[in-house]
Design a protein around this nucleic acid. Structure first.
Lengths: 262, 262
DNA sequence: GCACTGTGTTGCGTACTGTGCAACGCTCGT
DNA sequence: ACGAGCGTTGCACAGTACGCAACACAGTGC
């Protein structure tokens, strides 16, 4: 859309990989050094990039501050967090909260396992959308047409033999997840990691987020983890209630769902 | 420098205040709606802004992912090293940098003392976690529950009469360290060695590393070493600032300052 | 029912703005 | 001392982003 801005913004993910000097930035962007310099200077003025002692550029503090504000604006997170902590207190495993955004499913909160062996994940990072239990729950709630379009457009990486192989299998899995109201990922992403997840619903009943408990099977077996399903669902329901209940932004909440359609 | 990019980036702090619609963004930027739209679209393509259901814009999760990735790829050692050297230049003693990893605290960098009598340590080796000043700083920053669990699980070897004797004493010491923002080890590991240490913090304020100055008391007394506390703290703070990427907006560069600012 | 205000969106001609080039200055390494 | 490699500067050109005006659409009041 806007070439200049487009180029400037492309610098950010590039620098996220690690510090880079002017030449490298210009190369990766495919522009002249002087152009890259101008863009970097502008980013620098806004504090989004930082120039270190060796003159290389890296992401700046302002970006961290903005990121902080961005995540704080996600109010589901605020509401859910204490519940996630409670759940972690009672089972000890890693607890995640994820939402749908821009055709991706992102972890937006996480409470670390209290066991020494932990799974790796990163807040803000897209989840493995075709296999993650939270992704299945969130996507299962989409309108059918959208679900189908999305399923066709996705790649299906075979992380493990149990990864979802293709669109057809994915849609079938989504249908089942939608039906049963919870989801699992048993070694579909990493061989030894299992997850069990439940949906968080908004006042209109639509899924606004999903939460999961994950643990490597060196800590607990899949069966033991599945035994946590009731408490995971209870936690998700509690979050749903609080999220739906404390929404006085509009006028009185209508009792019935969609009253009338034009 | 670059008008277009400048305008686009100005949108981010604006949205950080809260969601805004197209008109408001255009107003605040002082540009035409169509211009604002083009900029927002470009930001949107890069995932930096997100369009919510009511068509208003807010900051996107991509910001958070970028910040997260940047932090992961940051090499504290690389950033800290020149500072450690400077500190060593000024005081001559052994300077250490340590981080938390897998329930241990490890030295990851070291600048040797310029005095003939040196303390023994090795980069990559776990520190004496119950007595080392750097370990206390790093562990003092953990969430309280984790701190307590860890304290219970540790052994408390009596290296010297002044070694931390047990979990209760350790937790008490951590609380004090957390409070005062620095730590010492006065003969707690080896009878004749004293240390004074300060924390390095990341952009979110959490302790990501700790650095210390150590010297045997045949070289300097504990009191003399403690006199170095201010400079140690200043050094640690400088590392924190650089690690966080705080842009020294107007800070004069030591030599060859070409730019004259009005 | 209608006109009317308030959005967000599109196409387009203009000229402003960003671009690449070439030359410069600086710091290292040999 | 010299050259290689880097960042930086000024400038002429044209590509690109700009604002305008018109459009589409929704909600509101009459």
């Amino acid at each position: 859309m806007s070439q200049t801005v487009d180029r400037a913004l492309s610098i950010l993910p590039l620098l996220a990989e690690g510090p880079a000097d002017l030449g490298k930035v210009a190369d990766r962007l495919g522009v002249h050094k002087s152009t890259a310099l101008r863009l970097l200077r502008t980013l620098h003025e806004h504090g989004l990039v930082h120039r270190q002692a060796d003159q290389r550029y890296r992401l700046g503090a302002r970006l961290f501050a903005l990121a902080q504000e961005a995540v704080e604006n996600l109010d589901i997170r605020e509401i859910a967090h204490p519940h996630l902590v409670t759940l972690n207190d009672c089972c000890g495993h890693t607890v995640h909260l994820a939402v749908h955004e821009e055709h991706e499913v992102l972890y937006i909160d996480k409470v670390e396992s209290r066991y020494p062996v932990r799974m790796y994940s990163r807040i803000g990072k897209p989840v493995a959308i075709t296999v993650a239990a939270v992704a299945k729950l969130i996507l299962a709630d989409l309108p059918e047409a959208e679900r189908r379009t999305l399923a066709e457009r996705l790649d299906y990486p075979q992380y493990t033999p149990r990864s979802t192989p293709n669109a057809a299998a994915f849609l079938k899995e989504l249908a089942r997840v939608r039906e049963q109201g919870w989801a699992t990922d048993l070694g579909g992403h990493e061989e030894s990691i299992n997850c069990v997840a439940a949906p968080v619903r908004g006042p209109d009943g639509r899924v606004v987020a999903a939460m999961s408990v994950s643990a490597p099977n060196v800590v607990v077996t899949a069966e033991e983890l599945l035994a946590l399903l009731p408490v995971v669902r209870r936690t998700a329901d509690a979050i749903s209630r609080e999220y739906s209940g404390s929404a006085p932004a509009d006028q009185a909440t209508p009792h019935q769902g969609n009253g009338k359609t034009p």
